[in-house]
Design a protein around this nucleic acid. Structure first.
Lengths: 105, 105
DNA sequence: TCACTAAATAGCCATTTGGTTATACTTGCA
DNA sequence: TGCAAGTATAACCAAATGGCTATTTAGTGA
C-alpha cells in the first residue's frame, strides 16, 4: 500500500509538529499536567507570543486540546500517541548513542 | 524525567528526518526492498542530486544504511522503528479523519 | 464605561531548508 | 589511459519558519 503525495504531505505535517525543540518542551510540560498558557510561559524561556504560536500549531495538528475558563486557556495532550512516538524516538537515540546516557520523554 | 534543551534538540532532529514528503517517499520505496540510488530516482519525480541529498540526511539520522557495490550504492531502512513510527502517525491521521479513507505506510 | 489580565494575532527579520543545475568524485572496463 | 556510469557535492535560490516586539481581542470586576 503506497501513499500518494497528498497523504505523504499529511504524514509529514504531523511529524513536523514534533520536529522543533520548543514544541517538544511544551509537550514535555503538558505530559503530567493540564496547564494554562501563562504557566507554560513561566516554565520555558521563550515569549508568550511564541508559546501561543506553537500551541496553535500543535492544536491545528490535533496534538493538544484547549479548554477555556474565563480569560485563561488550558491545554492538554490530546492523544496518547504522543508518548508512544516520543518513546520510540528516545529508545532509538539511546540505542544509537555511543555513550550510554539514557533519555526518556 | 525532563530532557534538557540539548536532548530535546536531538529528539527534534530525528523527528525532522520524517517531516518531509520526499524523505517519506524514499522510505516508502525502501520499505520492501533494498534499492540503489538510481532505482529510487526512477521511482520518484525528483532529481538524482536531491535523492542523494535526502539519503545523506536520512543516513546521518541513522534511519537508513548504505552498502556499496562497485559504483552503485544500495540503501536500506536501518531501524524497524521507522515502521512503528509511521504506523502510529497513520493511525492517528485515520482516527482524526472525518471521511474514512484509510492510509497506511 | 474603564481598567486590568490572559491569550492571540500581526508584522517583521534572520535562519533554515528543499529543490535545482552544474560539477567533482569513484569505480569498472575497453 | 581514457571513457562511461553511478553518486556525491557545491553553489545558489525561493519558500517556509521560529522568534521577537507591538498590538489586538476577549473576559472580569470595580
Amino acid at each position: 500500500m503506497k501513499l500518494d503525495s497528498q497523504q505523504l504531505a499529511r504524514v509529514a505535517a504531523l511529524f513536523r509538529a514534533f520536529a522543533e525543540p520548543t514544541r517538544l518542551a511544551i509537550l514535555q510540560e503538558l505530559k503530567s499536567d493540564e496547564l494554562a498558557v501563562s504557566e507554560i510561559v513561566d516554565r520555558l524561556t521563550t515569549s508568550q507570543a511564541n508559546v501561543s504560536k506553537q500551541l496553535k500549531l500543535l492544536h491545528d495538528a490535533g496534538v493538544v486540546s484547549r479548554r477555556k475558563s474565563g480569560t485563561t486557556v488550558f491545554y492538554t495532550i490530546a492523544d496518547p500517541m504522543v508518548f508512544e512516538l516520543c518513546r520510540l524516538v528516545c529508545d532509538k537515540l539511546n540505542r544509537d548513542a555511543v555513550k550510554p546516557s539514557k533519555i526518556r520523554f
